[in-house]
């Protein structure tokens, strides 16, 4: 997902700095963005791993130094596992909720402070439709995303007046490496389509975006279903 968004930003001429895992992979992605860049800008990168919070500050420092300040931070990374896999593996559960909630919030705090220090900017973070309501197939994964969505909404309330724009992205099913091997449900999105919607929402300074858009409607219904119905259905 991050790749599709970065490609889109680079192609329209934005200067991009990559944070991620795997030096060799980052190098290849940076080469890709440089080749796509409308201004033939070289793209910098730094290793940053959501599993290791000590990497956050140095990586963001490197981004700030290279770009001369940040006006947009996009967070797409997360762990994913099926409910079944999580129920059978307590250690995996610990890792997943720690990374997807705790460490993501810590990363956002680092980013928020840097954005506010220069008078604001945008923080766009991938949460999930899974965080909108407690549901059987995403009980554990969804709980981390619920916490993240909650945090992001509060950030928006608290810092909006100071110029911080917070975008909570709520993807439904997108055909990416994260969901490889899972059977795509109806209205599964492609990363390029999602990237287009997210970049547009960033530009329009929207607080929340569902993608594909149909999920806004689906989750509206799900949020209003009574508990006895949610106990019965498998969704």
């Amino acid at each position: 997902m991050g790749r599709a968004i970065a490609q889109r930003l680079a192609e329209r001429g934005d200067r991009v700095f990559l944070l991620g895992i795997g030096e060799e992979e980052l190098q290849k992605s940076a080469a890709d963005l440089a080749a796509r860049s409308a201004k033939s800008e070289p793209t910098g990168y730094a290793v940053c791993d959501l599993e290791h919070p000590e990497t956050f500050a140095p990586a963001l420092d490197a981004a700030e130094a290279t770009l001369g300040g940040l006006d947009l931070v996009v967070v797409t990374a997360a762990l994913f596992a099926t409910q079944e896999a999580l129920e059978n593996d307590i250690e995996l559960t610990r890792r997943l909720v720690t990374v997807n909630y705790g460490h993501t919030v810590v990363f956002c705090e680092h980013a928020r402070k840097r954005l506010l220090a220069r008078g604001g900017g945008s923080l766009a973070v991938f949460s999930s439709v899974a965080g909108d309501r407690g549901r059987k197939p995403v009980a554990i994964y969804g709980s981390g995303k619920a916490g993240l969505s909650h945090y992001l909404e509060s950030l928006d309330h608290k810092f909006h007046a100071q110029g911080l724009h917070v975008l909570t992205v709520k993807p439904g099913f997108v055909k990416t490496g994260m969901t490889a091997g899972l059977k795509p449900p109806p209205f599964a999105g492609e990363p390029e389509g999602v990237a287009k919607v997210v970049v547009r929402a960033i530009d329009a300074r929207k607080p929340v975006v569902y993608t594909p858009g149909i999920w806004a409607l689906v989750m509206l219904v799900i949020r209003w279903l009574p508990r006895f119905v949610m106990r019965k259905i498998g969704f």
């Binding site: 790749r3 080469a31 890709d32 080749a35 055909k175 990416t176 490496g177 990363p191």
Partner: peptide, 9 residues
């Protein structure tokens, strides 16, 4: 089809 990076030009 998702492995679509340009590695050099």
């Amino acid at each position: 089809r998702r492995a679509n990076r340009v590695l050099g030009f």
